[in-house]
Design a protein around this nucleic acid. Structure first.
Lengths: 125, 125, 125, 125
DNA sequence: GTGGTCTAGACCACG
DNA sequence: GTGGTCTAGACCACA
């Protein structure tokens, strides 16, 4: 479902939470769908349960999931968060653009690069 | 000359090296121009010399400066590295784009956003 | 496991990283095998942990190991790096050869010297 | 006459002395020929005279030149030193070979590489 | 004065 | 426990 790469400089808990963010925003985890339990996830990925817990805590703090004590964690409505999520990505785009600016790369070339790229459509499983 | 922000999650040495990377790539530090000495930089920014040294070592390893023990550190020719530097920024752009894709944002909208932004041209001094 | 010689002009951190490079390339440390921890190595060799860290960071930058904060450092697949490693040694051989050339030593004699030497085959344990 | 490269990690004084070693061993500086004066060399290469002095001191200590106070420095007979010089290069070859061994490269391949290389004959100026 | 290495010790984030 | 950052201060080689 998600990819964990130990060679990735990001901490594991961030890879986990980022992975679920994408799944939720992309609609691959539907509204109110139950998330895998901490124990389950920890065992299938051979990750310390503390790490999963941390990822879930972050996801809840950022509003991607909600927890019902004793029942589990559930995804929120994608529509509620997609705007916020998009805004975060646009912020990251801004920092990249500013670095392009100091490097003297023209906006025109960047735009062309983007339009030339593969469409990136996500396949339904 | 550069900005250090202790609330920035990036380590200080990285903020230092990134700051100089931009100055060099933007041509604000010319080829073979002397960089501030390790001690000088350390005292003006109230940072431990070891931390500056780490930043300078990284800059040297990545090919942005060369150091001559006993003489100082000097910027390399911007032309030598601008390609490599641009490639790094394009890589970061790619990860942002892939996140846009999963979020369902169209390439067209992103391109428009980029072209709408300020041009970012650097004025010659 | 490795040798540290304080009378060697090379800095300690380089002796450490070179030592592990050889162990990894020779296959004596297998893929994904855990390296000794920074503190462990520091105490067994009575070297400051910072110095070991420097060696490990260099090894990671050069692609010989990967480090996972909180978990440890691990060797990469020997096959991934042996080509690069060999290329580095061939480069050193080139500088030696060029010095032989100015000294007037014939390639024939050098080749004979090399073939006369002990084979250097590594015994499988 | 010799090349000084500030990007070379070797200290300048070593580049100077190494350069002259090769010139002497290759016979490009004849027996008892006068070496350039410290001041002369320092000004033509824009190097600190202390650095040249250090290089000359090393050359004298290693037997490549001899100094006559008040007159200058002179090259010794190439024949006297070429053996010693060759031995030094063979020593460096040995360490390279040992690194080849741990990397598993066969002596046969190394010998072939050496014989395949360009002859390296030095052109008389 | 310069860059560079090393030690000692503290602190943090991660698992 | 792990890797990683940072400080403080000493020492060295080089120019």
């Amino acid at each position: 479902m998600i990819n964990i790469n130990y060679r990735d400089p990001r901490p594991v808990y961030e890879q986990v939470s980022d992975g679920f963010k994408k799944l939720i925003v992309a609609g691959l985890i539907k509204k109110d769908e139950k998330m895998p339990s901490v124990r389950e996830l920890a065992s299938t990925y051979a990750i310390n349960p503390n790490t999963i817990q941390r990822a879930y805590r972050d996801l809840e703090n950022e509003g991607y999931i909600y927890s019902v004590p004793g029942k589990g964690s559930f995804a929120v409505d994608m529509k509620e968060i997609s705007d916020k999520h998009l805004a975060e990505i646009y912020e990251r785009l801004d920092t990249v653009l500013s670095d392009f600016d100091v490097a003297g790369e023209s906006r025109q070339k960047i735009a062309e690069y983007i339009l030339a790229g593969k469409s990136g459509k996500i396949e339904e499983p």
